[in-house]
Write a protein that binds this DNA or RNA. Structure first.
Length: 441
RNA sequence: GGAGGCGUCGCAUAGUGGCCUAGUGCGCCCGCCUGCUAAGCGGGUUGAGGAUAAAACCUCUCGCGGGUUCAAAUCCCGCCGCCUCCGCCA
């Protein structure tokens, strides 16, 4: 959720952000009007409520005086009872009015909230305008191998995986249906090696390693921003009113929900290891071969809580850690700055690292790092003591990928040899215990 | 799945319908006093929202959400969380 104060103080900035995202800028005025209504109805309710409280207190005092007089057999007991009764009648009358005004104010508040939720995070200056195809390539690292010059046709990751005894899609489908798979033998070991390397790097960089819940309650899911926009993407467990999370970002964002955290020593950084579940509802027919797009995979995710002023610098740091990981698997990749219309609603800016996939002749996403500024934390109630004064203020949250099952695709394809073997990148060898993966059939 | 217990300010506790504006102790912060420290004394110390130039001020907040009542920490209903025991279980 965006900051209503920003919207009041600088509505043009929010309008511009909406336009860049290809969304309705008119909602800004609707929100300002709803805000006005909420504040005036709240004022009406609160002042009458104050009066009601005062009168009600008089009732208490009058009742007390009457009871004492009655006990003592005082002659004015009857009179006191009448006084108490009159006060009670007045309070009862006020009570009805207060209830109506409160309902009014609640409704105005709910309407404001409903409108506010529809607005995506205000984008950071410099984010490209437009949709999915309007990204800007910031940098291209490494050069794709020339397989023609090497004299052989590269196999795709599934063909390689099957020869290596690393991937079994058929049995995956037998058990879980389409987009399920088994990682077997060196495949299973390779995934563990990638994820362990990611955890080791993160831990060395000062992240707290975490293994997180993969189910979350609706309010956490909503707070992290995964219900409004991604509702179709998410598995929901009807019987228990829980969601299967598509990333440990959900659990790491929820970790400090409704807390006041201490950032005086710098950002709090967590590296979450988890299974991830995605319905892939909107992608029928896309990437149906192999493990590029699957319903379940594993991921190591960086998550950072920092001060808002530091968020952009922290975003650069997360990107640098992603680059460090990508360098370790020695594949060509590029970095793109995602266009505004392709950002999730919590993100104010997003950088993806895309690895070269030789058999597709394309770069495919391996990592994604988003700066959510205060958008996620505001919904989740994660604040810090305001260092410049009294009270609290909302913190910024950021996330970024360090390794996933999909990385196997890039590793297998880019490091394959004419005989169907795959050379293991140097940095990965200590985690895998093998220098070369050899075909078994 | 069944039975029971519990949830109050950072922590510990008091409070079972109206002098509760939630008391007390500890911790923490500010000040006083004091060779230093400790003790002592005085004050402050949940969070959210509204109002304001800023305040004073007002509303809400006793796990969460409803309800009863003129009035709810207190009574009723639902939910969440934690604990104990029984049952079941890869």
């Amino acid at each position: 959720m965006i900051d209503i104060k920003l919207l009041r103080d600088d509505p043009d900035r929010v309008r511009a952000s909406q336009l860049a995202r290809g969304e309705d800028p008119g909602i800004v005025d609707a929100i300002l009007a709803a805000d006005e209504r909420r504040r005036s109805s709240l004022g009406e309710f609160e002042s009458l409520r104050a009066e009601q409280k005062a009168v009600s207190k008089d009732v208490g005092a009058a009742m007390g005086a009457f009871q004492r007089a009655k006990k003592a057999g005082a002659p004015d007991a009857e009179h006191l009872e009448a006084v108490a009764h009159a006060a009670r009648t007045k309070a009862a009358h006020l009570s009805d009015q207060v209830k109506a005004l409160e309902a009014n104010a609640d409704e105005a508040g709910a309407e404001l909230e409903r409108l506010l939720r529809k607005v995506g995070n205000v984008i950071i200056e410099g984010v490209p305008t437009g949709g999915e195809d309007d990204y800007v390539v910031l940098e291209t690292i490494g050069t794709p191998r020339d397989f023609a010059a090497e004299g052989f046709e590269p196999l795709d990751h599934l063909a390689l995986g099957e020869r290596l005894g690393a991937i079994d899609m058929e049995r995956g489908a037998k058990v879980g249906g389409a987009r399920f798979y088994y990682l077997t033998g060196v495949g299973a070991l390779l995934e563990l090696a990638v994820l362990n390397m990611a955890m080791a790097q993160a831990t060395a960089a000062g992240f707290t390693p975490m293994i997180t819940p993969t189910m979350a309650r609706p309010e956490i899911m909503l707070g992290a921003g995964f219900i409004d926009a991604h509702a179709d993407e998410v598995y929901r467990l009807e019987a228990d009113d829980l969601y299967l999370t598509g990333t440990s970002e959900v659990a790491l964002a929820g970790y400090h929900a409704d807390e006041i955290i201490d950032l005086s020593a710098g950002p709090k950084r967590y590296a979450g290891w988890s299974a991830c579940y995605r319905r892939e509802a909107g992608s029928h027919g896309k990437d149906t071969r192999g493990i590029i797009r699957v319903h379940q995979f594993h991921k190591v995710e960086m998550f950072s809580y920092c001060r808002p002023a530091e968020a952009e610098a922290e975003h650069e740091r997360l990107l640098a850690w992603e680059r460090e990981m990508l360098a370790k698997i020695e594949v060509p990749y590029r970095i793109i700055d995602t266009a505004a219309g392709d950002l999730g609603s919590p993100a104010a800016r997003k950088f993806d690292c895309e690895a070269w996939v030789p058999t597709q002749g394309k770069y495919r996403e391996l990592t994604s790092t988003s700066n959510c500024t205060t958008y996620q934390a505001r919904r989740l109630g994660t604040r810090e003591r305001d260092p410049n004064g009294s009270g609290t203020r909302t913190v910024a949250t950021l996330n970024g990928t360090l390794g996933t099952t999909r990385w196997l695709v890039a590793i297998l394809e880019n490091h394959q040899q004419p005989d169907g073997s795959v050379v293991v990148p140097q940095a990965l060898r200590p985690f895998l215990g093998l220098d070369v993966l050899e075909p078994i059939a």
